[in-house]
């Protein structure tokens, strides 16, 4: 378990030593900040974070892959992963270490948006339960996209391929329920259940249901296992 921590610590150090992390953090804050600001004036009569939580998942589909794109791709390209894999550390420990590092970075970014609900709460009675649920949903969604991004990064030596692949998968999962139109029947139900945004919407309403959590955790689990197998195949 210690080794997961060592990898996480190293990756976090690298994030804050590189420009990418800062660019991603600033862009995310600027974009979500302006959306929050705009929706704030849109519905002055309603005190809620709805506008922010409605839009954030879309941007996460891009920002999470941007955070994860280099995690394996650059290490494969430079050969550091090969060296690491001859040391006494398991593939799964490497994957989890990197996953946690990306999650911590995301958590820091989300924490930086906390002034939005705080500002709102000063204007009246804000439903903190819904806000809390929204952030929990964001973390779950962020973890899912991070796991997908990590998986895509483990497939290639090229960061650009990694981010595009991850973005494609994230967007597909985000849009799949809207692609089927008015849902009827089993197929539509499956499409809805496979959609990240469907589950996020239901959490953001303030109700954290087991089926939503189970969905996110299973996608995360599958992606992390595939990532571990993928680097174990040593094809690069």
């Amino acid at each position: 378990m210690n080794k997961v921590f060592f990898v996480t610590k190293r990756e976090l150090g690298s994030y804050f030593n590189s420009v990418v992390a800062y660019v991603v953090v600033i862009l995310f804050l600027v974009i979500t900040g302006s959306i929050f600001w705009l929706s704030y004036f849109d519905e002055v009569s309603v005190l809620s974070m709805r506008g922010f939580f409605n839009q954030a998942p879309l941007f996460l589909a891009f920002f999470a892959p941007a955070i994860t794109m280099g995690l394996f791709a650059t290490e494969k390209r430079s050969g550091t992963l090969e060296l690491l894999m001859t040391m006494p550390i398991s593939n799964f420990q490497i994957v989890m270490g990197k996953f946690f590092a990306a999650m911590i970075l995301l958590a820091v970014v989300f924490a930086m948006t906390l002034p939005y609900p705080y500002t709102l709460s000063m204007l009246g009675a804000l439903d903190w339960g819904a806000v809390f649920a929204g952030y929990a949903g964001l973390m779950l969604l962020g973890a899912t996209y991070t796991a997908i991004g990590l998986m895509a990064s483990s497939w290639t030596r090229d960061q650009v391929v990694a981010i595009l692949t991850a973005f494609a998968i994230c967007m597909f999962l985000y849009l799949i329920d809207q692609l089927v139109g008015q849902p009827t029947g089993t197929a539509a139900y499956i499409a809805e259940y496979a959609s990240t945004s469907y589950h996020f919407r239901s959490i953001a309403r303030g109700v954290i249901e087991a089926r939503n959590v189970v969905y996110y955790l299973s996608v995360i689990g599958v992606c992390l296992v595939v990532t571990t197998l993928s680097i174990g195949a040593r094809r690069w």
Partner: peptide, 20 residues
């Protein structure tokens, strides 16, 4: 292959940690 963005000391420390 080395982690280019790390300091030499930090790098050796990381390897020492992983190498138990």
């Amino acid at each position: 292959p080395l982690y280019d963005e790390m300091l030499v000391y930090d790098y050796l420390r990381f390897i020492a940690e992983v190498q138990e």
